[in-house]
Design a protein around this nucleic acid. Structure first.
Length: 719
DNA sequence: GTAGGGTTAG
């Protein structure tokens, strides 16, 4: 309307306007010209608010004119500077910005991430209408300022403004972000009262909200009542199940979605990929990949992340890396997908190398990246590397992040330094159950059962409720320290005092605890009385206890149970064979070895690693390939002499093969673990921790567990 | 001007 109007009156206004506003217009014109494609000065002046002021007869007409002018200007703003300048002009000229103009400014500012500026404008505005309320609530909700969004929503209603079909999805998003179930329920009630039960946008928001709160049944109910389900409704439901640990139901929804002839878009595919990842459906994941390419979605960056994560998590790290390499500038989440993929699949070196590359690039690691990197340090047992990341954490924004710091506790404990673990623990302000559990586990790992129990009591005093993981830590701590009575006491208190149902790990701990202490009959009876069907781990604990105490009867029984559950693990055969070897039943040993051979079960060769000054050194049994080999064997001989003088007799009876005692002794003495420790001793200062040894396999004719991670912490002063 | 998705599990 106003362009015509303006054209009509333009000549008269052109002259007057120039005269009236020369100083103001001249200042702002140069910069505004870049924002606003001017066809001519005439056109600019004919639409300027000053001109409107001049030509318009009533306020309403003038206001419309001003709105239109600023709307045109704002549409051309791509930078915050431009918006701020335009907005400043409104007040400079002395005209009251309208709801319309401010809404537009708020909208653009929040899209540009300048939510504080938007909020300030909003607060200064006297009478916001529903559009402006929606814009400001949306802005906060989109920037994860969920509490503020809900607070604004409350204020809006107090000021007598009723929500509409645009307000509610933002409010529900805020509830989702906070997992605020109770508030979400109240909003749901409001939705029903206000009559939005057929608004598909609002209903989709409800589905997503309930899913984020973990209330899958409510989400499903809302979904089932929906008449016109869009691809968003399906995706909300599907991804909700995937996020709530029910990938099978997610895939079932995907099936129903296909029956309903709803075509998945790329966002739906992301969730479908996640569900296939969680069920380790690499084959189906690959076919989704095929579909992605066919549908032309393969350039969607977020879908590429989901694909990378899928391949990485399913163990195809090389394929994942190929996808990763396609992206010239990966964002933090893509970096995380790749780094965590490496970390999860045991490619700790690759994970750390990629982490270094990330730091060298422009990308900034977040808490997820740091956790994956810390996990990798823990896996390789490198204290030096771990300290380096700790330093990075300290100067990052995540120095108070409880997740990151708990990962550090775990890492330090596994890398052999309880001191560092404890100092991280001390600096955490808001310790939660996992923080406590990590340190309890750490003490247990180092054989400090009493300290672990003391920590558990401190935890109770701090009013932090233990969970089942805490008890795994506590029971294994009792286990490593031979605290049978205490272990039994805590096992029973799990259920009676904390209402926690013991799981397989807890039963396995108890069997181990009883068995190691020599109470084999009790251990056996304990397994027989379990309310859940014993898993391999439980029988495995009994078998290894039988090996220690040379009990063939229970050992054979446990082995029988194990083989009925899993025939494919070489470790179990070796354990049974070791049991026979311990009592000299060599024909049985040979029989088991034949069985293994027939089943084509190969055992990985054992090796030990030690981290010295950030460099890892790997040893196999009798390994002479290390450059310092001579010194290592020299140190070993020295140690042996000292040990013999101290009255030590090697436990040769547990050597697997039927060797003579001299050979057995030699086999024991050049065990990879000994070589690693000897190297540690000659390469480090006395009394400093040698570090942690990760023993991937102890099957070198040396008694002990097979295929376990064994953490050894020693100081020179021990030997 | 509306809604759904990606990295994590210490």
């Amino acid at each position: 309307m106003s362009w015509v109007l303006a054209e009509r009156k333009s000549y008269l206004g052109f002259v007057s306007c120039r005269r009236l506003s020369l100083s103001i217009a001249a200042k702002s014109l140069t910069s505004i010209r870049t924002l606003f494609e001017l066809r001519s000065f005439k056109q600019f002046y004919s639409s300027s608010p000053l001109f409107a002021d001049y030509i318009c007869e009533d306020d309403e007409e003038k206001s419309l004119h001003v709105d239109l002018f600023y709307s045109k200007l704002l549409d051309n703003c791509t930078r915050f500077k431009d918006v701020a300048q335009v907005h400043a002009q409104v007040s400079k000229i002395g005209l009251q910005a309208s709801n319309f103009t401010v809404t537009k400014v708020v909208h653009i500012c929040s899209n540009l991430g300048r939510i504080q500026y938007a909020r300030q404008l909003f607060e200064e505005f006297p009478q916001p209408n529903i559009f402006l309320w929606n814009a400001i609530i949306r802005g906060h909700s989109r920037h994860d300022l969920f509490k503020d969004a809900l607070e604004l929503y409350r204020k809006m209603q107090l000021r007598g403004v009723s929500p509409d079909g645009f307000t509610l999805p933002y409010v529900l998003k805020a509830c989702s972000g906070l997992s605020a179930y109770e508030i979400g329920r109240r909003v749901h009630a409001q939705i029903l009262l206000l009559g939005f039960e057929t608004d598909v946008f609002v209903q989709n928001g409800l589905v997503a909200m309930y899913m984020k709160c973990g209330a899958t049944h409510w989400a499903r109910m809302v979904f089932d009542r929906l008449c016109d389900r869009t691809v968003v409704s399906w995706t909300s439901l599907l991804s909700g199940y995937a996020q709530n640990g029910d990938p099978l139901e997610a895939l079932n929804v995907f099936y129903l979605m296909q029956l309903s002839d709803v075509k998945p878009d790329w966002i739906a595919l992301v969730s479908i990929l996640r569900a296939y990842t969680d069920v380790e459906g690499l084959g189906q994941g690959k076919s989704v990949h095929g579909f992605v390419v066919k549908a032309g979605f393969d350039s969607e960056p977020d879908l590429l992340i989901a694909l990378t994560a899928m391949y990485a998590k399913c163990g195809e790290v090389f394929v994942a890396k190929c996808l990763f390499n396609q992206v010239p500038k990966p964002d933090v989440i893509l970096w995380n997908a790749m780094i965590s993929g490496y970390a999860k699949n045991g490619f700790a070196d690759e994970a750390i190398e990629l982490f270094r590359k990330m730091i060298a690039s422009e990308a900034r690691p977040d808490s997820v990246t740091l956790r994956s990197a810390i996990l990798s340090c823990a896996q390789v047992g490198s204290l030096e590397l771990g300290k380096w990341i700790d330093e990075l954490v300290k100067v990052s924004d995540f120095n108070t992040d409880v997740f990151v710091n708990t990962a550090l506790i775990d890492m330090y404990a596994k890398c052999g330094s309880l001191e560092h673990a404890h100092s991280v623990f001390d600096r955490i302000q808001n310790k939660d159950v996992v923080t406590w559990s990590a340190l309890i586990m750490g003490y247990g790992l180092h054989g400090c059962g009493r300290e672990a129990i003391k920590l558990f009591q401190d935890m109770k005093r701090s009013k932090v409720a233990p969970n089942d993981v805490t008890f795994v830590g506590l029971l294994s701590a009792c286990n490593h320290s031979g605290l049978v009575e205490e272990g039994q006491k805590y096992f029973h208190s799990m259920k009676t005092d904390y209402g926690l149902e013991p799981r397989h790990q807890h039963y396995a701990c108890m069997v181990d605890l009883l068995g190691r202490a020599g109470y084999l009959t009790e251990a056996y009876q304990f397994v027989e009385s379990m309310p859940i069907k014993p898993e391999v781990t439980v029988w495995g604990a009994l078998l290894s206890a039988c090996k220690i105490h040379k009990n063939i009867k229970f050992g054979e029984y446990a082995a029988k149970q194990i083989f009925s559950l899993d025939r494919s693990n070489a470790g179990h055969y070796v354990q049974l064979s070791n049991l026979y070897a311990s009592v000299g039943m060599w024909s049985e040993v040979a029989r088991i070895r034949r069985k293994m051979k027939n089943a084509r079960l190969a055992k990985p060769q054992g090796y030990s690693e030690i981290d010295v000054k950030g460099i890892r050194h790997s040893f196999r049994v009798g390994d002479k390939s290390h450059p310092k080999s001579e010194d290592i064997f020299g140190k070993l001989e020295e140690l042996e002499r000292k040990l013999k003088d101290a009255g030590f007799v090697p436990a040769t009876e547990s050597v697997l093969h039927d060797l003579n005692s001299e050979e057995k002794e030699e086999s024991l003495c050049s065990h990879s673990e000994r070589l690693a420790i000897a190297f540690g001793l000659i390469s480090t200062e006395p009394v400093l921790p040698v570090g942690m040894l990760l023993i991937y396999s102890l099957d070198e004719g040396y008694g002990g567990l097979l295929l376990v991670n064994c953490h050894i912490y020693c100081t020179s002063s021990i030997v």
